[in-house]
Amino acid sequence: MYRIRFHGRGGQGMKTASRILGAAFFLEGFEVQDAPRYGAERRGAPIFAFVRADRSPILERGVIPNPDLVMVADDTLVGMPQAGVLQGLNAHAVLAIHSTTPAGEWRQRLNTDARIVILPPLFDLLDAAQRVRVSAVIAGAAACLTGRVGRDTLSQAVRTELADLTNTVIKDNINKALQAYDEMNEFKGIAEPQPRTDTPLPTGWITLGLDPATLAAPAIHAAANSVQVRTGLWRTLRPVFDYSHCNRCNWVCGSFCPDGVVSADENGWPRIDYDHCKGCMVCVAQCPKHAIQGMPEGWAAQQTMPTPPSPDRKEAAP
């Protein structure tokens, strides 16, 4: 059985990618399961989808803990433990990343035995108009890596799954899917089903005992501890201040930020809490002085963020 996981962010089309690949396998005569998995998280948060394909009826269900192939649409997720990209990967597995960073560098950076394949950039994640394309590209690459889906079948699967869209968009996506498929040609068929061990592991069962009701009620006895949830990980664009243009009005960026992560420091300079900024870019769109710019997160993470001028520059502010 093929077990394939797709990692991206909410809104990046991983569900559609899993459906295109699922449809392709189905058209090739496989039994198939495809499903997305999400919880409370929203657009921008790490999510995953998965596909199972086999020649016999599939009896497994739910998430795939030990995948044969992992497809990553957004390479900023790879190093993020919360995204679980590397979870369950062994030396047999293939990790395919859509990235400009070469495989060698990923190999150095990551603590994984998996074989790493790089899918060269075929879409711009930051361009909302290309969102569908992400699905087609990732599915196309995955189809080739399994070696079990032909080009014609892939085209048909894209057409089936994107049937609601216009013919032009469908054609563009078929082309992109095939382009990704061809890019992966040298790795065709390297993702193979892993043999499954049928020796049951210890269950680790316990007999659950009664806890005091105060402990056993679903209640949080704390205030404002959601700061421990780093929603900054959802961000693909980072708002960055150009303090030379900021007039410290504060009310625009500070009031409009839905998450309240822009606050004024003791000198009245606005500061962004990047641990929690979800990257909605409302502040960028609203700042009348254009003192905030949106930077790609991957790039911005490597930079030193500008710090507010010292208080004595106060008079310089208009």
């Binding site: 949830v229 929603t231 009310w251 009031s255 839905p258 998450d259 309240g260 606050s263 004024a264 990257g279």
Partner: peptide
């Protein structure tokens, strides 16, 4: 308007909600 905020960040609402 308030320059610091009371509601803690970290809740699962969509970006731009």
């Amino acid at each position: 308007l308030p320059k610091t905020h009371l509601l803690a960040p970290g809740s699962a609402m969509c970006a731009g909600c």
